[in-house]
Amino acid sequence: MKKALIMLGCVLGLHTFSFAQEIPVKGFAVMEPGFEFQPYEFTRHAVGNDEIQIEIMYCGICHSDLHEARQDWMEEHYPLVPGHEIAGRVVKVGKNVTKFEVGDFAGVGCIVNSCHTCDECNHNREQYCPKMVSTYNSVDYYHDGEITQGGYSNTIVVSQDYALRIPDGADMKRVAPLLCAGITTYSPIRFAGVKSGDRVGIAGFGGLGHMAVQYAVALGAKVTVFDITEEKRDDALRMGAVRYVNVNRPEELEGLNGMFDFILSTIPAPYDMSMYLRMLDFGGQFGIVGVPAFKEIPNLTLDQFIWNGGRKVFGSMIGGIRETQEMLDYSVAHGIYPEVEIIKADAAIIGEAYQNVLDGKVKFRYVIDMSTIK
Rank of each mutant, 00 (worst) to 15 (best):
A203L: 11
G94D: 03
V91Q: 06
M7S: 10
D72P: 10
L264M: 09
E231G: 12
H334T: 09
N154V: 00
S159C: 06
A106I: 00
Y78G: 05
Y142M: 02
M31D: 09
I86F: 04
E339G: 07
S316I: 12
D261S: 06
K295Q: 12
Y78T: 08
E296I: 14
G351M: 11
T324N: 06
G258C: 01
A203C: 12
G94H: 03
D72S: 09
G207W: 05
V194R: 00
G27K: 01
K95H: 10
I147C: 00
F191K: 14
G319F: 02
A218C: 13
H210A: 06
M279F: 14
V25A: 02
G319C: 04
F282G: 11
A163M: 01
Q355P: 07
R89K: 15
F286W: 02
D281H: 10
A221V: 09
K312F: 15
V108A: 07
R125Y: 11
K131I: 15
V102Y: 10
V139H: 11
N299S: 14
A4P: 05
A353L: 07
I156Q: 02
T324I: 13
P268R: 08
L358S: 09
A236K: 05
P177W: 02
D235N: 07
A106S: 03
A192F: 05
K344P: 09
C115M: 01
V133Q: 03
G193S: 01
V108P: 04
V200T: 10
E22Q: 12
E32L: 06
N248P: 07
T135A: 08
M57L: 15
F19A: 06
A216I: 03
F17W: 12
I343H: 02
V332Y: 08
E251W: 03
E85M: 00
L178T: 01
T155W: 00
F100R: 02
D161W: 08
K173Q: 15
R233L: 11
V213H: 07
R249K: 15
V291S: 07
A192C: 14
Y271F: 15
M211T: 11
S153I: 03
T372E: 01
G109Q: 08
F226Q: 07
T185F: 04
G103R: 04
F37I: 06
P338H: 01
S159W: 10
A333R: 06
G284M: 07
L256K: 06
Y136T: 04
A20V: 10
W73I: 11
V25W: 00
G287K: 01
I189L: 12
K222L: 15
A203E: 09
I183C: 12
I288W: 04
C115K: 02
G315L: 00
V81C: 04
E254T: 14
M7C: 14
P167V: 13
F17G: 00
K2M: 02
E36A: 13
H334Y: 08
I336W: 04
R322W: 10
I166D: 02
F262V: 09
H143N: 14
S134W: 14
G283M: 03
I202Y: 03
I202R: 05
S274L: 13
L302V: 14
F100L: 01
E32Y: 08
A20S: 12
V93R: 04
V367S: 03
Q160I: 11
W73R: 08
P79M: 05
C10P: 12
G284S: 02
I54A: 08
F262Y: 13
